[in-house]
Nucleic acid binder design. Structure first.
Lengths: 228, 228
DNA sequence: TAGATTGTTAATCGATTAACAATC
DNA sequence: TAGATTGTTAATCGATTAACAATC
C-alpha cells in the first residue's frame, strides 16, 4: 500500500506533529475569537510559538487546507484540525485519586471546553465518598468497571500517590480503558495497545534546574550567558 | 575547543537525555530504598521504562560510572546523576496563581523532597492574601521582585489563567527569574536565555484522544488493534 | 580463564529547517 | 501580470537502536 485513497489521506501523522496539533487548535481558536477570518502560516506560527516552516510541514500531513497567495481560513482550518485530533466528538473521562491534584483536575475548565467530560471521580478512601467535587460525586474505586461500561469511557486519569498507580492502571485496563494520563510519579506497565502519557511536575522542575545550573549566577544582565 | 578537559567532560548533554535523567534518578532512589546495592543497565532500564541501550547511551554522556561485568553502584550513580541535574543543591521557587492548581502545586510533596523549596505563593487577588496554603502565606503579586531578590529565586511557576500568564512571565523576567514552568494554556514570549517549560493538561488529553480515535471501538479484545 | 556487562561505534530512523516551485 | 504565500523537496540535524569490542 504505497498509494493512498483520498479518504485515508490523513493517516500516519508523525508523533511530533500530533503533539503540536492541539497547540495550533488553541491558536486558531484565539484568532477566531479575536475576529480574524484568515491568517498566513507566518501569523499562525507566531501565535503557536513555532516557526512557519514547521507549521506548514505539519499541516501538510493533514491535507491541503490553505490557499496559496492567501493563507488559511481560520474557522475551516480550526475545524479540520479538531476533526483530525478527534475533539469534535465527546470523550467521557474518569479521574481516579481525588487528592489535591485530583480536585484541581476535576475543576479544570480546560477539559470540559475541549470535548472531555468528567463522568466520574473515584477514590479508594471511603471518607471521600461523601464529597462532591465540581458537581460530581466521588465514588468508590470498585465502581470503576461499571462506570466505564456504562459511559463508554476510553480515557482514564490517574492522580493517586505513586504506590497506588499500577493497581489503578491494571484496573483501568481490565475495565477496557486504553488511554491513560498518569500524574503519579511512577512508571506504569501496561499491555500493548494501551497508551500512557505521563505528566510529572517534579521532572519538569528538574529539567529546568539542570539548565539553570548551567547558566551560572545571574549577572547584571542575565542574558549574557544565553545558550546557543 | 574540540578536546575536553576532564573537569568539563560532562557538558552538552543532549536534551532527550537531560529529560530522562530525572527518571533514572527516581528509579535509582526506588532501588536504593528497596535495599539494592548494585544493578545492571538492564535492571535500571526496566525500572525506568526505557531500553538498556538507550540507558547506557544516556549515561555515557555523564561519564563512566559503571563497572564492566558488574553493573552500577546504585548509591554512587544516584549521587552522580543528582549532581549532574543540580538537585544536590536547594532551589527556591515561587508559585504565582493560587487557584485550584496552585493549591495542588503548593501542597505537592514531590517538590520539597527533590530540592525545590516553595518560598512564596503569590496571587493578584487581594481576597486570597488572608490565606495560608501548605504553611506558606499567600502574598500580593507586587511583592514578586522583593521576594526573588531576597531568596535568590531562579525558578518560577505560573498557575494563573491564560490571560494573566504573559504579564506574570514579564514580571518574573524583570525580577531576574530565568526558568519558568508554565501551567497556563498560553504561549509565552520571553527573552533569549530564559527557559520556559510548559505543562498543558488539555493538550495531553487531546494527544490521547487522537490515538484513541484511531484505535476504533473496543472489541472483545481491545489489544487486537495494537499500533505498530 | 570464562562469563558478564559496560561504553562505544555505526547504522537507521525521525524531526527540523531553508529554499523554492507551484499557484492563488 | 505581479505579488504573496502555500505545499513540497532536499539537506541537515539529533535521537534511537543493535551490535560488539573492551574489560571487569
Amino acid at each position: 500500500m504505497t498509494e493512498r485513497t483520498p479518504t485515508e489521506a490523513a493517516r500516519d501523522i508523525p508523533e511530533a506533529t500530533v503533539a503540536r496539533l492541539p497547540v495550533y487548535l488553541r491558536a486558531l481558536t484565539s484568532l477566531a475569537e479575536a475576529g480574524t477570518a484568515t491568517c498566513s502560516s507566518e501569523e499562525l506560527a507566531t501565535a503557536a510559538g513555532v516557526n512557519s516552516a514547521k507549521l506548514r510541514k505539519d499541516l501538510s500531513h493533514l491535507g491541503s487546507y490553505g490557499t496559496r497567495g492567501v493563507g488559511y481560513d481560520v474557522e475551516y482550518l480550526r475545524y479540520q484540525i479538531a476533526r483530525e485530533i478527534g475533539v469534535t466528538q465527546d470523550w467521557p473521562v474518569v479521574i481516579v485519586g481525588i487528592g489535591n491534584l485530583g480536585h484541581a483536575l476535576a475543576n479544570f475548565s480546560g477539559f470540559r471546553s475541549r470535548g472531555f467530560r468528567v463522568v466520574a471521580l473515584l477514590d479508594a478512601d471511603p471518607s471521600r465518598h461523601a464529597e462532591q467535587v465540581a458537581g460530581v460525586d466521588v465514588r468508590p474505586f470498585s465502581d470503576l468497571a461499571a462506570i466505564v461500561a456504562e459511559h463508554g469511557v476510553a480515557i482514564g486519569v490517574i492522580s493517586t500517590p505513586a504506590h497506588a498507580a499500577q493497581d489503578v492502571a491494571d484496573a483501568m485496563v481490565s475495565a477496557g480503558i486504553r488511554s491513560i494520563l498518569n500524574f503519579a510519579p511512577a512508571v506504569l506497565s501496561v499491555p500493548q495497545g494501551v497508551d500512557v502519557r505521563k505528566v510529572d511536575l517534579s521532572i519538569e522542575l528538574q529539567i529546568l534546574a539542570y539548565h539553570e545550573q548551567r547558566k551560572g549566577p545571574a549577572g547584571l544582565d542575565g542574558r549574557l550567558e544565553a545558550p546557543a
